[in-house]
């Protein structure tokens, strides 16, 4: 079974790395409830590595009325075992097993259950006393705990997790233009363009970044002492850009005018990022530190040394109105 074809629709969301992490996961469900089985279904289908169901009960008739993963012929059989079989049918790549144990006893002295065997634990229909002990255990070991219950039209979901670090985010990156502190190749690139180019086609292909930077540099020359642009000054520039449009269809000038307010901001490290860089976890690195903090520390070192107070450049540029050669050139600056 070709995995890239089967998983195509989800790979578009979390790509190969995300899928690899899913396939390395081992998830534990306490109690083979309908809610729990339904949750596992949504994890087995996309291909988690393995799952374990801890359940000591036998399938009763009431189970068949609400749980898709037990049938009438399973009645009297161990519930966990029945559910595992039906769930495994959803995806032959996934390993599933059943532990014949009362979930209430998993933390007892003689229990062989170990929270740290799992990447994540889902608890349903557990007593609050047990949950409190389990939560403490999960917290200590660093395993996320998901608690869920349902009753009629009402449902409850709670997640306990100490820290969740994300390195590869799949939401689009922000534009990081740094027009107020342009790097040398950008400055060089921008100088090649003439805002008064008589050739109307070339005029209409000037990337908006170039337009903005040229206006900004003109303002800098007239205001050498000013630390940053005021809102009023930005509006003045926006009007000037709009007036410079040679005809109403010049999209590149439209883009420039539209983006004046944020693109000409002072480049600085955003406060939430600064918080992360200044977090003591960056100093306390050990072999076991998550990659996230190692990277954060590396980033902090960069900012303090090569970066001259700035973060590394993401390099992402969104599409803009210009010709191919210019756009390719900008991307490679």
């Amino acid at each position: 079974m070709d995995k890239t074809r089967r998983y195509d629709r989800q790979l578009r969301l979390w790509k190969a790395h995300g899928q690899a992490r899913l396939e390395a996961a081992h998830i534990c469900l306490l109690n083979g409830t309908a809610t729990g089985s339904e949750t596992l279904k949504n994890l087995v289908l996309p291909g988690i590595g393995a799952f374990t169901i801890v359940d000591h009960r036998l399938v009763a008739e009431t189970d068949t009325g609400c749980n898709f993963f037990v049938t009438k012929s399973d009645i009297g059989q161990p519930r966990g075992k029945a559910i595992v079989e039906h769930l495994k049918g959803l995806n032959e790549e996934v390993s599933g097993r059943w532990v014949n144990q009362n979930p209430e006893t998993i933390l007892d002295k003689d229990s062989s259950f170990s929270v740290s065997d799992y990447s994540l634990i889902i608890a349903t229909q557990c007593s609050s006393e047990m949950l409190i002990r389990l939560a403490a255990n999960c917290q200590e070991v660093g395993v996320p705990l998901v608690v869920c219950e349902t009753a009629g039209f009402i449902g409850y979901l709670r997640i306990q997790i100490q820290e969740h670090t994300i390195i590869e985010s799949y939401s689009g990156p922000n534009e990081d233009l740094r027009l107020d502190r342009p790097f040398p190749t950008l400055t060089e690139f921008v100088q090649k363009f003439d805002l008064n180019d008589p050739d109307s086609m070339a005029h209409g292909q000037i990337p908006y970044i170039v337009i903005l930077l040229q206006y900004y540099q003109a303002w800098q020359r007239n205001n050498p002492e000013a630390p940053s642009m005021t809102l009023k000054e930005k509006k003045v520039i926006r009007e000037a850009i709009t007036r410079a449009m040679r005809h109403p269809d010049e999209e590149n000038f439209e883009e420039a005018a539209k983006n004046v307010l944020w693109a000409l901001n002072t480049t600085q490290i955003p406060p939430p990022v600064r918080e992360i860089l200044e977090n003591p976890r960056c100093d306390q690195l050990t072999e076991n530190s998550p990659d996230f903090w190692v990277l954060a520390r590396a980033m902090r070192d960069f900012v303090q040394q090569e970066g001259d107070g700035m973060l590394p450049l993401s390099g992402h540029v969104s599409d803009m109105k210009t010709d191919t050669a210019n756009f390719v050139a900008i991307q490679s600056l």
Partner: peptide, 22 residues
């Protein structure tokens, strides 16, 4: 000199594929 053309992207654009999960 435009990077980024993959078979997956081609399918996505031509078929207007919408990502979907259970």
């Amino acid at each position: 000199q435009i990077p980024g053309v993959t078979y997956m992207l081609t399918q996505g654009v031509v078929k207007n594929i919408i990502p979907a999960i259970a």
